[in-house]
Design a protein around this nucleic acid. Structure first.
Lengths: 347, 347
DNA sequence: TTGTACGCGTTATCAA
DNA sequence: TTGATAACGCGTACAA
């Protein structure tokens, strides 16, 4: 049984296709009786306009795409993804839009972009953003970047990663620590932090800035940098690697909460007390951060607002042209229980 | 600057539209040189085929829809949503599909369904499923229901809510409790539990079954039923209402973890010790359940598998017809610290 | 209210 | 084998 289409209904009702279309989209242009008549027949025959054909005619889809740099299963495990989507969802609900989650197709970002039938894209934390931007431009729909280094002429929403990182490091330094290890998210750049980009680069920049304020820099002795995967395991391994060294850090500054939590777990398991023996700072303020023991001092960012603002920028961009804006949302240090002054003898 | 289309490329390359189409989709039908030539020109002019037009011709979109009964912002707050989507995401990644999140449009489920340009739907926990099913059938794409009462002729994936609920209640009874309150998720049915449907109905059914095994039923005295919203606040209010009564329950069986957690918080605040003074059981095994104090005894369900199985059923259904299957995934009781035998004097 | 052009690719058919 | 012509899919918009 082939899908019933507008022609079938027109025939059955003895009217033109146009009349059927009006009955659905603009009933006021038809006499009430015929409109009703058409709708009834459509109902009986189980007709509903084909959304693809409709998009073809109207030129829009009623859908926005969220472009994700990783496969869906990995992304949704990210603890702040739900909040971010919540913000987008508010705008979608308000504007009557649906949200399409677009991950690389067969490993290809390009393929994913050109295949997605959407009116615009939100991009989240793209890394090889240059190549992707080209495809996105070519694709011909508006887009807004989130958590990427801003590009000229493209609206960008970011959070103040650098500022937050600076606050975090500053806090640790101000409380007296001088033996510090930074646990960075593995970048593929093997510790060449000058080459870090995006979120990673911004956070690193913030750490360095705070260090500089105290006349310090990453020197491999008192202040060290180590990369690890952004997982609990990564944090545990990071701690273990650090604890093998002759001189232990008195504070570990981690680029993500999940790393910090791994550190705390490994430290506790090794009989190292947090924060008495070791202070730990995270980044992100995931739900777990306030629940573990000791509660994690970390940097919070407004994920929901980020999604909300990015989506509403995109909607404006779709509806009419708009001056591209770069917006930076504030981050803030949340002081909890995982940081205290270093012990005297270790100082 | 209008989007460049297939005709522009054909013109520029001095070939027909067909040749351009072949260059993209079926290069073997062209001499290598012309194919290459066309692709080069397309690249230069920034052409990529319009996904909508393409869908129009091919008859498929490369997208599946996840139909949600509530607005996006509410749904994503649901603690097991990420896991469920993770399962779907595995299938999408494998099959090269994108996922569209489809919530009611302007309050209308029907409108959302008919507007979504997808090859098939997954539905999650629909309540007014009858009306929605009709629209879905009419929409003419295959669909698989998840967490709804199975419908004849439609593949359905469920978890054994009844079995899990039965285990939970049985556990409480077997350990000696006879003064029990069930905190149900507010249904709009005001305690007429015979009318509960879907997940709610199944869980209620499980509770009743266990009660029956002990010769008990909901009688308003030793075994009571109370509805509350599925929020922490709902649980707190539930506890308070219960504690005003002359005879306190020795155990509270909650239909969701979040309710149970509310109960524990309110109880603790009121100086009632869990589990010594009051045993509490939840449902869902959200992350928080193992982290609060005392750790919550609850029922776990395989959310990721649920998504994975449902999505792969849908993919099969899209690719070819398939016998509709009803599949029920197991749930299991997780015993933690929030349940113990009742005190003697209260028995 | 209706007829018709149109949007943009894909594909069956046909010709060289 | 290589490529062109034309029909097709399904609504919407505009002139009549």
């Amino acid at each position: 049984m082939a899908r019933v289409n507008i022609k079938d209904i027109a025939q059955k009702a003895g009217v033109s296709k146009t009349a059927v279309s009006f009955a659905f989209n603009n009933p006021s242009r038809l006499s009430e009786s015929t409109a009703q008549q058409i709708l009834t027949i459509a109902e009986e025959m189980g007709y509903s306009p084909d959304p693809v054909a409709r998009s073809m005619s109207t030129g829009h889809t009623g859908t926005i795409g969220l472009l994700l740099p990783q496969p869906l299963p990995e992304i949704v495990r990210n603890p702040f993804f739900p909040e971010f989507v919540e913000g987008i969802g508010e705008v979608c609900t308000h504007s009557g839009l649906s949200l399409m989650l677009v991950s690389p197709l067969k490993g290809s970002m390009r393929r994913a972009i050109v295949n997605a039938a959407v009116d615009g894209f939100l991009t989240l934390g793209l890394e090889e953003y240059k190549a992707t931007m080209v495809v996105l431009r070519q694709r011909g729909v508006p887009f807004v970047t989130v958590d990427s280094d801003p590009i000229e002429g493209v609206p960008a929403i970011n959070v103040d990663d650098a500022g937050g990182a600076c606050q975090a490091m500053h806090h640790v330094l101000a409380i007296g620590h001088r033996q510090i290890a930074i646990l960075a998210i593995r970048s593929g750049k093997q510790g060449h932090y000058q080459e870090y980009v995006g979120t990673l680069g911004a956070r690193m920049h913030g750490y360095l800035q705070a260090l500089q304020q105290f006349g310090l820099s990453i020197n491999g002795r008192s202040v060290r940098l180590l990369e690890c995967t952004s997982t609990e395991n990564g944090g545990m391994e990071g701690f273990q690697a650090l604890w093998k060294l002759r001189r232990h850090p008195t504070a570990i500054v981690a680029m993500s909460d999940i790393i910090a939590i791994g550190v705390i777990k490994a430290a506790t398991a090794a009989g190292v007390q947090v924060p008495q023996d070791l202070s730990v700072v995270g980044f992100d303020d995931i739900t777990l951060a306030s629940l573990i023991h000791p509660a994690l001092t970390t940097v919070a960012q407004p994920s929901r607002e980020k999604g909300q603002i990015a989506a509403s920028q995109l909607v404006k961009l779709i509806e009419s042209s708009l001056e591209p804006v770069h917006q930076v949302l504030p981050t803030r240090l949340i002081e909890r229980a995982s940081v205290c002054p270093p012990k005297k003898e270790e100082n």
